[in-house]
Amino acid sequence: MELIGFRFFQMALISALLAGIACGIAGVWIVTMRISFIGVAISHAAFAGALLGLILGKSPVFFAFLFSFLACAVLGPLSDKGQIHPDTSIGIIFSSTLGLAFLFMGILPEAKSQALNLLWGSILTTTLKDITLLIITLILITIFTILFFKEIQSVIFNRDMAKASGISATIFFYLILFLTGMTISATLKSVGGLLVFALVVNPAASAYQITYCLKKMYILSSLFGVLSGWCGLFFSAQFNLPAGASIVIVSTFIFIFSVLFSPKRVRDVEEQKGLF
């Protein structure tokens, strides 16, 4: 507990708070629209971009943004109206970005530790710049969610039906992908390229087990995201474990508990028994 007095730990706690909320919100979109595979591909693209940034001696975060946006620009149309089945084309993008990431790691001349930090995450070295980036991302994603709640809800429900209502569903779908890419890029340093996606999916998937109300799902998902971050940090400090991995493991345990004690699951079982 004495760690709380240290500035680096305070910064890590703030980072976990901001990343938890942002990933929690983006996770709701990914989980309810069932586009987890697209999200994984975006997170790997962001990781590959960050590594390219390191090779070129430029900002890894900027290149992570750039690559994740490019991935969204390719993945959006593929999932919408590709000639090949979306699962196949997204699988190819996913494996390609992962291949690129490892290629960049291989040719990275120096500073391998920086690359490993991006891979595993280094929340304990969070800087003021990282926090600022997370704040900007969180503000954008929150404003978008509040202002366009009804449009996002319609797109989540069914994209074709949203179109039939006169909503520009395709534009909103792309905005959702881009903001997810932005969230992943901003969180990359804290949790790491390999694990960031678990922080997007796990809290939202946990909230999905609990509520039928979309507003409550946003809140629960963000709460679980923050809880994962803070508990993960605590376990990491207490047992000298890698912080990123600890955060993801905690989020997985939250998911397991939410499945076991899900009111929806209880209802399903009762329905099967004819009790409901």
Binding site: T32, L147, K150, S165, I167, Y208, L214
Partner: peptide
């Protein structure tokens, strides 16, 4: 399990007409 109530679906009909 989708967190969308029947009431939400009814209202969705007028979302495009109401506007941004």
């Amino acid at each position: 399990k989708l967190p969308v109530l029947a009431e939400d679906v009814v209202y969705m009909g007028c979302y495009g007409k109401i506007g941004l």
